[in-house]
Design a protein around this nucleic acid. Structure first.
Length: 197
DNA sequence: AAAGAGTCCAACCGCGACCAG
DNA sequence: CCTGGTCGCGGTTGGACTCTT
């Protein structure tokens, strides 16, 4: 069976039901690894990468899709503040959610919400004589926030290295169903991280 | 009703890490 | 060590759908 080696040969675009079915079946037999050969075995004209993506984000069992609750949203916001754009780590805290979905949710919903909040702040402060100063401070705040995310990310790496903590420190995916309330409380209590950061 | 603008999300791309030979 | 293959991640794109004018 010939492997699909060139991008030109590979099918692209939206997956069909038939393709999904073929992929699921072949994964049931061989397991979710060696994606390139799985694609060939399933008779799919897709690259291995595409198959992996499809499985990980849509076909895998126990995946929750859509309807992100307020609790989950709150958790995403807090974790993003702590971890930055490390979507896979954030997803690891939310059982059944994929990094892909969280990233999309962030880009389409949450980033907008944050902008709106910023604007509200701006409107409130613009009524004061200090409006111009406020504008500058909001700009600064946004920069600090951005920097904090990036900085915290690198500090986490640094901390992890010096304390022999891998990314799996944040990965609870192997554990049972996670209590979102507990997680939320944990974040409230976890002042040590902020002390460190 | 139609056209343009805006939104959402699935899929793709590029890069770095890891590993076997 | 070096190299090629594979995997995983985050960023970006493109197209379908919805909303607005």
């Amino acid at each position: 069976m010939a492997l699909i080696s060139t991008k030109k040969e590979a099918t692209r675009g939206v997956w069909t039901e038939e393709e999904d079915h073929k992929l699921s079946q072949i994964i049931q037999i061989h397991g979710p690894n060696k994606w390139k050969s799985l694609a060939a075995k399933a008779g799919l004209k897709r690259c291995g990468k595409s198959c992996r993506l499809r499985w990980m984000n849509f076909l895998r069992p126990n995946i929750k899709r859509g309807n992100i609750s307020d609790q989950e949203e709150d958790l995403i916001l807090r974790l993003h503040k702590l971890l930055g754009n490390r979507w896979s780590l954030i997803a690891g805290r939310l059982p059944g959610r994929t990094d892909h979905e969280i990233k999309n949710y962030w880009n389409s919903h949450l980033s907008k919400k944050i902008k709106m909040k910023m604007k509200e702040k701006q409107v409130k402060s613009s009524s004061s004589v200090e409006s111009q100063k406020a504008e500058v401070s909001i700009g600064m705040e946004m920069m600090v926030e951005k920097g904090r995310s990036e900085e915290s990310s690198s500090k986490i790496d640094e901390y992890s290295k010096s304390n022999s903590i891998g990314d799996d420190f944040f990965d609870f995916s192997q554990e049972g169903p996670l209590n979102l309330e507990l997680m939320s409380k944990f974040l409230d209590l976890d002042q040590t991280w902020f002390d460190f950061l």
